[in-house]
Design a protein around this nucleic acid. Structure first.
Lengths: 121, 121
DNA sequence: AATTTGTTTTGACAATCGTCGAATCAATGT
DNA sequence: ACATTGATTCGACGATTGTCAAAACAAATT
């Protein structure tokens, strides 16, 4: 059986995330590039439909793409759009096996977001 | 010297956050309300200007409101707008002492967001 | 090859969001 | 009282975003 990964393993977006603490002084903020990168990651999480998708993925090994639409109450087109946004920031990956595509969360990426929010020191 | 808190201590938004894992089955997503609440928190983080503000606050005890505008490169009006959004989700709090307002991060709130992103189990 | 089913892309639309100038409010000092 | 400086609110604008119907694409089956 052939299986084809939907998102490449190492997209440009897969580079390490900056962290909020230890980045700057009280009067000089994080750089523009780092702030945009981090904000982009949060943007990917900033929609109820995508939060629901992640909630399903975090409670299963993998989820068939065919199951998202009904669970989040959106059309297939809208669901596909949200899945793409999550793939583009490296948070999930899809794996086509025959007719269906199975999605998984990329735990390292989620952990990186958590680390970015670590309290100061 | 009088000090007045800009955001109330316990706004409606200060209620506990849902977590992504342990919320649902693989085929039934997180509830609408919980998903919107969580997405709202991430929305608050989903802008470079607000990320910069948080980066400053996480590297200092407190920051004078008067310092944000220059550091993030936005007008006072825009800066005030972003500060309000962060206050409204309970991530920061402002304290007026005489002429100036000093902002601090609310660490419990930041920790709650981190916890919401914990990996499944 | 033609059909069927699952998924993505395209195009269009309404709604939301970030931004700023101008006006307003708040506290202080003259 | 008045002027000054810091901060917020208001009103307007362009840009981005979420949504769906329709068209296009992909894999499997007849």
């Amino acid at each position: 059986m052939t299986t084809t990964t939907i998102s490449p393993i190492a997209p440009a977006n897969a580079r390490a995330l900056p962290v909020l603490n230890d980045c700057c002084t009280p009067t000089s903020a994080m750089s523009d590039g780092d702030a945009s990168l981090l904000a982009g990651m949060f943007k990917a999480l900033a929609d109820p439909a995508r939060v629901k998708i992640l909630s399903m993925l975090l409670n299963a090994d993998e989820v068939c793409a065919c199951d998202f639409s009904a669970s989040i109450g959106k059309t297939a087109a809208t669901t596909s759009h949200h899945l793409k946004l999550l793939r583009d920031v490296g948070l999930i990956t899809g794996d086509r096996r025959g007719t269906w595509i199975y999605y998984r969360v990329i735990p390292e990426r989620l952990a990186a977001i958590r680390d970015a929010l670590a309290l100061g020191q």
